[in-house]
Design a protein around this nucleic acid. Structure first.
Length: 452
RNA sequence: GUGGUUGUAGUUCAGUUGGUUAGAACGCCUGAUUGUGGUUCAGGAGGUCGCGGGUUCGAGUCCCGUCUCCCACCCCA
């Protein structure tokens, strides 16, 4: 007899967890719909030709590959083996599990470019898979909740997504977070001014480590890569400044007069002023890099402040999403919420509402075949009223039936016996208080519907 | 991919320099109470000590391997 097990980094979601996850998904979807996004679903698997080469060398290794069906060795030759896994892979696997929702979106847009109406606003809430090593807040199967606006360069979109993310977290009562903003163009201009033109990725990677390894280590590492540390020091001073985002932006603008990014960020902050009723923390962070290679404009990331957790939401503008698939000059902007991390944060801060604790509101208990039969009619009537209810499925010890209601957190119990069948008045017990009243079915319905 | 850590009942954990039949709490089942749960009391079931190998008269305990869990790095949601 073998013990069953789960693949590394995957989880089951029991009833209580599923209810909470559904609450989360529903809350996010509601905001997506409110902001005019339409749903899209794509297959769990994509062709590897679509997936590979889009996430950098490291990302490619994190894509789960699906072994070809049938005799999967048939297509590979001895020389493929000898040349190593890079050469062998295409003959062994042609499909992979999707790594994110952005690349499948790009594929979808290209394949349906003539049928779509632009700007195309789509949302997508589906699982993605990464062959990463699991740790806190990192799973091998997790849900992303993406909203993207494709086919417009309007700078209103940046503002719109900012308002959207505020509304999402507000609806979840999650207020301990900070939205970090930066711009790819500013990063590139900083790299150029620091003498690292053409090696912007290196520059970003090192700069991004700032809060982990500290300023001296960053300067040292930058110097070892041939950067101008004197210039960089000036940037870092600006970065660490305590003045407002807009003031720091203006100062950075003096350093980088040619940067369009500074202008765009200033315009962004200026537009946001009209929505100052939404109170939340927005912070300019010149060190924010975000690894994904396709962002070209503004980038942002949301981090919880009172829980130790990586980013729970991220996104940015990309000018050439579909370029790799042969459709140039499609600009868009996207945002991605990490459902599983948000779940962990809400759980830790105990922000899930009470109402997610229960679904069935009333249980009907009974003693014998006759009262069981009566219960069948009652449960049907309650269900026709749309009330989530249940009939204990077999006659038996009433104690056991009450215990069942207790275990499942069912708040009300109705009991049927021979006397109740004739009087048509039933003991209606509120489990939390122990209070019990004798009521007709209509009175019970009206009470359960809250009309009483 | 690199490093550290963990694994004993359904769950959380004890288990002495290696030594009889591996324990507790909670949970579960039954009864006290054959028309009322959450309290109490009594009783009961439940373990290939992650898996494989080794050392030993003897291994939950020591050694090796392997898997897994959690954590950090890398990277990211």
């Amino acid at each position: 007899m073998q013990k069953p097990s789960l693949p590394k980094g995957t989880r089951d979601f029991g009833p209580q967890e599923s209810i909470k996850r559904n609450y989360l998904i529903q809350a996010i979807r509601q905001q997506f719909v409110k902001y005019g996004f339409m749903p899209l679903e794509t297959p769990a698997m994509e062709n590897l030709s679509v997936l590979m080469g889009k996430y950098g060398e490291e990302g490619d290794q994190l894509v789960f590959k699906i072994l070809n069906s049938g005799d999967f060795l048939k297509k590979s030759s001895r020389s493929d083996f000898e040349k190593g896994s890079q050469h062998l892979l295409p003959s062994l696997a042609e499909k992979g599990l999707r790594y994110d929702l952005t690349v499948p979106l790009a594929r979808y847009v290209v394949m349906n470019q003539h049928a779509l109406t632009f700007p195309f606003k789509r949302y997508q809430i589906q699982p993605v898979w990464r062959a990463d090593r699991p740790q806190k807040g990192r799973y091998r199967e997790f849900y992303q909740c993406d909203a993207d606006i494709i086919g417009t360069r309007s700078d209103w979109n940046e503002v719109e997504l900012t308002l959207l993310l505020h509304d999402v977290f507000e609806s979840l009562k999650l207020r301990d977070f900070v939205l970090k903003i930066n711009h790819r163009d500013v990063l590139f201009a900083m790299a150029a001014a620091s003498g690292m033109s053409g090696r912007e990725i290196d520059f970003c990677v090192v700069l991004d480590k700032l809060d982990k390894i500290g300023e001296p280590a960053v300067l040292e590492e930058m110097a070892s890569k041939g950067g101008n540390t004197h210039k960089l020091k000036e940037f870092l001073d600006l970065l660490a400044g305590t003045t407002s985002s807009v003031e720091r932006l203006k100062k950075m603008g003096e350093q980088l007069p040619a940067s369009k990014g500074i202008e765009q960020l200033l315009a962004y902050f200026s537009q946001l002023e009209a929505f100052s009723d939404r109170q939340f923390k927005i912070e300019l962070d010149f060190s924010l890099a975000r690894g994904l290679t396709y962002y070209t404009g503004m980038i942002f990331e949301v981090k919880p402040t009172s829980v130790k957790m990586g980013s729970i939401c991220g996104g940015g503008r990309y000018d050439n999403l579909t370029g790799v698939f042969g459709l140039p000059d499609v600009s868009g902007i996207g945002i991605s919420f990490g459902l599983d991390r948000i779940y962990d944060v809400l759980e830790e801060l105990q922000l899930f509402p009470e109402s997610t604790q229960q679904t069935t509101t009333v249980l009907i208990t009974h003693f014998d075949q006759e009262s069981f039969g009566h219960g069948k009619k009652m449960v049907e009537k309650l269900r026709k009223e749309g009330l989530p209810c249940d009939l204990y499925p077999e006659p038996g010890k009433i104690k056991k039936q009450f215990n069942y209601a207790n275990k499942l957190n069912i708040p009300y119990v109705i009991t049927i016996g021979s006397e109740e069948i004739t009087t048509e008045k039933y003991p209606f017990k509120e489990m939390s208080t122990g209070h019990q009243a004798s009521l007709t079915l209509d009175q019970i319905i009206s009470r359960l519907k809250g009309n009483d």
